[in-house]
Design a protein around this nucleic acid. Structure first.
Lengths: 326, 326
DNA sequence: CTGAAAGCGCTTACAG
DNA sequence: CTGAAAGCGCTTACAG
């Protein structure tokens, strides 16, 4: 049986109120009594039970984390960062995924609220708008999403990879994503387009819309670099490129996004960009705990994406090279 | 403000006790009153608050999930399966990871207990023994781990891939894992070794112990197939093979384990084996809820691993082919 | 069949 | 500085 507050009070012949005050540093308690209480609490290994505290304070000391899809390879890092940060802040993390659809997201939020979470961290489904919620919440989506609390600077990442390719002599690019229904992917592509330099051209393609063909055609017309919105997209393009006899990076440069687990280990190793998940997680948690604890809450934050140059874009390309027959 | 039990009682002019009994189907309540209570509860959108219930019943209706490392690519699927199953059973899931070491695992367990979880699902760190715990727990490790509740049949998976390779004419194999400190990997390799047929030979290697060199040497001596313990290991071997001028699957067959996200999309697509995460998750949750709710708890379970044949082992190999110069 | 009462373990005004 | 009391929202014996 776990020791209770009353056990300490009885052992010391004082009231439970004084024990509680001594342990929390609230109310007036003499230093001497406080010390005796702490010693006895340590001896017994006492920890306040969550149920009694929650009932009295109205706070569960738990945060809910809503993910669109736990099996998405990008989310584990976020979940890990958020879990560790919230633990440091003294909150537990309840998880739920949105079961792949929008109704699922609303249900997941409703379940979390019923379980009494003090606040929510939400990584929303593509383009979902979060209605008013009865608890504070932090949104991790894209800087262009209204109400976004913190996220990677996807647009800046797009700009960075295009500059990287430009420095290597690439002037004709293919920009390719999975789906333009994704705000994250749209922002990455937008950032790429915005920073095309003088004389640079780019074809945009989406995997959903026969993007592989579009991509191969553009290469046939002289494109020398493919900037994708995700390592997974890059990996999916590698096969068709090989089959078409196009070598990476010798004939075409290729880049990804997110530094997924296979990016460093595939051949050629994939140039990619990644944001610091811990920075994102800690800003989300800091924002929430600030609100919960009455501190001033920080402004929204945009975490930069860092380029990780690898073999897939290592070669300098002569912008006037012959076009590859397709 | 969320409606309380008392609000329903007041609105109907009955006691909170009757409302509680009506809603839970316990105690004696007339059908007529039960119906009125349900109607009013629906109208108000009443849900019992978790704090009051937890304090009274001693149950939090939450399960803790302890993972060695949330960022491990294998765990998201498990976490997702467990989360969904426990949700169906009416339990929330608190997550914690072990921060990469054994002490971290013990701390994570202690934190979960302090938060009042009713039971734990533990995917233990390599070779960790779980001491006695004050709540029921389900262990997901390997069938050979004492106290294991449910897990994939890693040994059977090893046997399956070796038979698959044997059918394709391979008789000289390399079996390679990351680390023999991992019970899962040891079981997979053991299953492989056990089912080597007549006249088959195999070299075992570990990445940790310069396994790549061992592997290349074995191929130099005539091995025609590499069975790895993980898709990630297979991916890591592909580069050195390419550099050595060894083609997959033309000269050497290659297989993985776990069907990670890149396995189907890499080139060549990777033959692999996978267990049904939902089956594992639901057995773990069923075991725990059975104990918590006083039902007979099911025996330990071993979930079969299914072969997913892909291009990387598609070719029949002549066992007497020339050896490749190394 | 129904309701009044007690109590789960805490914290927080409040009185002394 | 310290303690007695009330109460957070529920559920469960128990009395009527």
């Amino acid at each position: 049986m776990q020791p209770k507050l009353k056990d300490i009070a009885n052992a010391l012949g004082v009231s439970p109120a004084s024990v509680s005050n001594a342990l929390r540093g609230t109310g007036r308690v003499s230093a001497e009594l406080a010390e005796r209480v702490r010693a006895e609490a340590d001896r017994l290994g006492y920890r306040p039970g969550p149920a009694g505290r929650a009932l009295r304070t109205g706070r569960s000391q738990m945060l809910g984390l809503i993910l669109p899809d736990l099996s998405n390879p990008l989310f584990p890092r976020m979940a890990q960062a958020i879990q560790r940060q919230s633990e440091t802040a003294g909150y537990g993390i309840l998880i739920a995924d949105s079961h792949g659809d929008r109704g699922g997201q609303e249900e997941a939020i409703a379940r979390m609220l019923q379980r009494g979470v003090d606040a929510l961290v939400i990584i929303p489904r593509r383009g979902t708008v979060i209605e008013t919620l009865p608890v504070p919440h932090a949104l991790i989506d894209t800087p262009s999403t209204p109400g976004n609390t913190v996220s990677a600077d996807h647009r800046g990442g797009g700009a960075t990879i295009v500059r990287h390719l430009a420095e290597r002599g690439h002037s004709s690019l293919v920009l390719i994503g999975d789906s333009d229904a994704s705000p994250v992917q749209r922002d990455r592509i937008a950032g790429m387009r915005e920073s095309l330099g003088e004389g640079m051209t780019a074809t945009t393609a989406w995997l959903e819309e026969d993007g592989i063909s579009t991509c191969l055609e553009a290469i046939g017309r002289g494109a020398t670099a493919i900037a994708t919105t995700s390592d997974l997209v890059a990996l999916q393009i590698l096969g068709p490129l090989n089959e078409a006899g196009i070598e990476v990076p010798e004939q075409v440069a290729l880049s990804g996004f997110d530094d997924l687990v296979f990016a460093s280990v595939m051949r050629p190793a994939l140039t990619t960009l990644v944001a610091d998940s811990n920075a994102i997680g800690s800003h989300a948690i800091e924002t929430l705990t600030a609100i919960l604890e009455g501190r001033p809450s920080p402004p929204p934050m945009r975490v930069p994406m860092t380029l990780i140059p690898r073999a897939s874009t290592a070669l300098k390309t002569n912008p006037r090279q012959e076009t590859i027959p397709c």
